[in-house]
């Protein structure tokens, strides 16, 4: 049971925002010492662990091709495509983005989107613009909700899209870990295929929520306007 201190170290280390590499290394060493491994055995474990998990770093082989197409405007072209969604309502803009994000992540193009690359400069302004067209003005509370959902569409899309691509870290972590520890032999492609059902359901659940978002925003805007009116009558009442 003492070895569980290692898990606690990971939790605490990540919580206080230490460099994750240090957290992982230190808790690995502490856990191994508690588990009765000698220093040489620990070094051996780090060495053989690194050697057998090299496949996790295979994403490196796609960097040159992603890099060159970025150099020639991949992100700019993606933005042009996404901006064609601009005529829709806020919820549908986000639904369109969710679809694009998930589909491209499934092809390994996770660098196309992201909070800094697309959400802030593009997706949120477009969703907000759609709300402005619909309501005339957007109360702060509604703006918050659109912001939250803009970032959420990106996360849901990328998390449940990338696992369909074989070279993604999580798939290779699984194969490396179970192959090394249990002597199995799993092909990354087998795992990637079984990520598809969850990907479809994630799209359905989140997509359904985004379709309903427009009605929620309607209600929120109405409620915010009422509140404002009340606040106004309250102040005029006070003056009289």
């Amino acid at each position: 049971m003492l070895v569980l201190i290692g898990v606690l170290l990971v939790i605490v280390g990540f919580a206080i925002r230490l460099n994750p590499l240090i957290v992982v290394t230190v808790s690995g060493i502490v856990t191994a010492l508690l588990g009765g491994l000698s220093p040489v055995e620990i070094l051996n474990a780090f060495g053989s662990g690194f050697a057998s998990s090299r496949s996790v770093t295979i994403f490196v082989v796609v960097l040159p091709v992603i890099g060159i197409i970025e150099r020639f405007g991949l992100q700019e072209q993606a933005k042009t495509l996404i901006s064609k969604l601009a005529k829709l309502t806020a919820g549908r803009v986000l639904l369109g983005y969710l679809l694009v994000r998930q589909a491209t992540a499934a092809l390994g193009l996770t660098s196309i989107g992201g909070h800094a690359q697309t959400v802030r400069p593009l997706v949120f302004p477009m969703a907000e613009g759609a709300a402005l067209r619909r309501y005339g003005s957007v109360p702060e509370r509604v703006k918050e909700k659109i912001k939250g959902h803009s970032a959420a569409a990106d996360n849901v899309g990328v998390f449940f899209g990338e696992d369909i691509f074989v070279a993604v870290g999580s798939i290779l972590l699984i194969t490396t870990f179970v192959d090394t520890t249990y002597g199995l032999h799993l092909e990354p492609l087998e795992l990637a295929i079984w990520a598809i059902p969850t990907a479809v359901i994630a799209f359905l659940i989140h997509g359904f929520r985004l379709l309903r978002l427009d009605r929620q925003l309607d209600n929120d805007v109405k409620a915010a306007l009422e509140e404002e009116k009340h606040a106004q009558t309250a102040t005029t009442g006070g003056n009289a």
């Binding site: 620990i42 770093t57 972590l173």
Partner: peptide, 11 residues
């Protein structure tokens, strides 16, 4: 990712 994988093996 590789260090986390190694950590899993150590754990």
């Amino acid at each position: 990712p590789q260090m986390l994988s190694t950590l899993g093996i150590l754990f």
